[in-house]
Design a protein around this nucleic acid. Sequence first.
DNA 1: AAATAAATTTAGATAAGTCTAAAAATAGGT
DNA 2: ACCTATTTTTAGACTTATCTAAATTTATTT
Lengths: 218, 218
Amino acid sequence: MFSFSEENYLKAIFHLERKYQAGVSTNALAEEMDTKASSVTDMIKKLSEKELVIYKKYQGVKLSELGKKTAIEVIRKHRLWEYFLVEKLNFNWDEVHDIAEQLEHIKSEKLTQELDKFLGFPKRDPHGDPIPDAEGNFSVANKMLLSELGKAEKGICVGVKDSSSEFLRFLDKNNISLGKEIKVLEKESFDGSMLILIEERELRISQLISNNLYIKIQ
Amino acid sequence: MFSFSEENYLKAIFHLERKYQAGVSTNALAEEMDTKASSVTDMIKKLSEKELVIYKKYQGVKLSELGKKTAIEVIRKHRLWEYFLVEKLNFNWDEVHDIAEQLEHIKSEKLTQELDKFLGFPKRDPHGDPIPDAEGNFSVANKMLLSELGKAEKGICVGVKDSSSEFLRFLDKNNISLGKEIKVLEKESFDGSMLILIEERELRISQLISNNLYIKIQ
DNA sequence: AAATAAATTTAGATAAGTCTAAAAATAGGT
DNA sequence: ACCTATTTTTAGACTTATCTAAATTTATTT
């Protein structure tokens, strides 16, 4: 079994690989993990010895098949627990991340399977992210950022890029939640803000907001 | 916040204090924690600095009020999670201990409270042990060991002293479970075994068994 | 009360994960 | 191609929790 720290590194590498297919740099990992580059190098060596990552000095890291499988298992647990907290224990979607960061490291395959079953095999967590199934498969939705929409186009809100409490509470306050339709009424080119229509209300949002909201078109 | 290891020591001291009111010895703790006496001394010093225990060299330890409160919180979480695993996730009572050992260290007061509410504020875990409430109060049942009963006496099974898988599975196999009435038909003085009546079946059990089964009389 | 046994503590070592500071390698600009 | 800036790695140190082996304290026995 792997330590909490090892699992967290694997998860971080997994997420960064989407952006850096050629290999995740030490500095990128250090920023993601909120630690120093030298610590990252140390851990990468350890993960490499355990054959969880493929690593050549100065060339960045990639996950091995085992590393990827392990990372996906951790992500599966994280998202199942988030779903549990919101659907069964009345948590708001902005409160669950830190607790799920702890729960994702609990080691018991049976627990994960039974939790999944108990929850009715949910497909997405409260932030719209897909939950991997027991085999590690999960849909990579054809989502796009709201900011990519043009004037008069519309989409369904399906997820958030930033899942910080601050952002999620902003969305709550403005009644923006997953599943709602958003139509772009106007786009202001000089600051990137847009006027949107959501549930018959008009709302002006900054580019920072539209850049962190995923939508699905059609 | 305290480390997993610190919490485990506090829990162990709490349990041992029932037996050693004068103070828990280093060796007793070492055995309970399955570690070396020197490691125990190291940890006790640390707990003492943090004012979680009262410690004088060579005199054993006792929990401080803070230490006791912390230990009870961990035990509360352990037992709530055990109840959750059995009642919601279809675990058998012999499978839950190791997973609860992990879950008991999750830090979130809200999680504990909401879990308690979700489960309907259960009073006892699957092994019959009382679950402390949010204020740390819990009933210390007036239970006794089955082995203390005399011939022709009877009681209701309310808990187990040993909660190892092996013992619990033995009980399952022989259809002994919490809430059932047990009557002593015969006691064999030379080996301490007894013949009991449970659900109209007669069963001979060794002293090891009757020494690990709690019953309530009347 | 002295001698021995048992329990406990101390001293020093180890492993995991992190850090700072310095060295080495790579990348970029001219 | 060279010089500089950036990135990455190495070296050495620190903390937590553990260990072994030795020293010390307490308890027991005669």
